[in-house]
């Protein structure tokens, strides 16, 4: 067998073993508890999963939540990157904005949700909350990337009077790519968690969070599990797609070495 295929097959097998192990742990605990309301058995959740995902409404709800998270995430990433660039090039802007970002980082997400409920319509709230949670992550990572850019390369560019925009494009951007990748990975997880939490509290129409809230109210524990599993799956798929897109571009830039 081709060694690459063999390695891939082994990795899939390992993943399946891990999955079945945790499913077995879940099943054992569920049988021990023996109360579907507290912890439904995996088989029941699987049955509900297949019932729910074969409805048109499921796809509409999943798409609506996905859209909100993506808008919030992309907005937060762009704003974080722009703020980092601005704060790096302007000391006054840095002094002005740094406390604001520190406050956003330290404030519990639920405080923002409750405050924002007063200001924003429920449909936009998850977008705003995801945006707010992703922004400091993108800002901090971009700033680290900028600060860790090789000073010697910047000196060289300055000596040769390379224009500022080209320095950003050709030196800073390739240097900060690994930092952006890390920001994408942690920012996406945050966007999902905070966005769905905001949906639970704001209960907009067509939202996974609203479905989770409804499942709780109607004591449908299996549905709570199904929607949670849906969020996890969608989060993983989205992260894989975005990191693959960035990595494809990053492949052009081999790891930096002092040359």
């Amino acid at each position: 067998m081709n060694p690459q295929i063999k390695e891939k097959a082994l990795s899939v097998l390992k993943g399946l073993v891990v999955l079945f192990f945790w499913l077995a742990v879940w099943a054992v605990i569920a049988h021990a508890v023996n109360k579907e309301l507290i912890l439904p058995v995996p088989l029941e959740v699987a049955k509900r999963f297949f019932v729910i995902i074969f409805t048109l409404e499921f796809w509409q709800i999943a798409f609506a939540s996905l859209l909100r998270i993506i808008i919030g995430f992309v907005g937060g990433m762009l704003a974080g990157i722009l703020l980092a660039v601005l704060m790096n090039s302007n000391k006054f802007a840095a002094a002005l904005l740094a406390p604001l970002i520190k406050v956003v980082r330290a404030t519990p997400v639920v405080s923002f949700i409750i405050l924002a409920l007063v200001w924003i319509v429920s449909n936009s709230l998850p977008v705003f909350i995801s945006f707010l949670m992703v922004l400091p992550v993108a800002w901090a990572n971009t700033l680290s990337g900028i600060e860790n850019t090789d000073r010697q390369l910047l000196e060289m560019a300055s000596l040769y009077k390379v224009k500022k925009l080209r320095i950003w494009r050709k030196i800073y951007f390739p240097s900060i790519q690994p930092y952006l990748l890390a920001a994408v990975s942690s920012g996406l997880g945050l966007a999902w968690k905070s966005g769905i939490t905001a949906e639970v509290i704001a209960a907009p129409r067509m939202a996974i969070g609203s479905e989770l809230q409804a499942a709780k109210v109607y004591l449908e524990s299996a549905d709570t599990f199904v929607w949670t599993i849906v969020v996890v799956i969608m989060s993983i798929i989205l992260e894989k797609i975005i990191t693959a897109l960035i990595s494809r571009r990053q492949a052009k830039y081999p790891a930096e070495e002092k040359l």
């Binding site: 010697q152 390369l153 000196e155 060289m156 050709k170 030196i171 390739p174 052009k252 830039y253 081999p254 790891a255 930096e256 070495e257 002092k258 040359l259």
Partner: peptide, 9 residues
Amino acid sequence: FQENRLLPW
């Protein structure tokens, strides 16, 4: 320069 200062990418 003493170091070559080339962009590795």
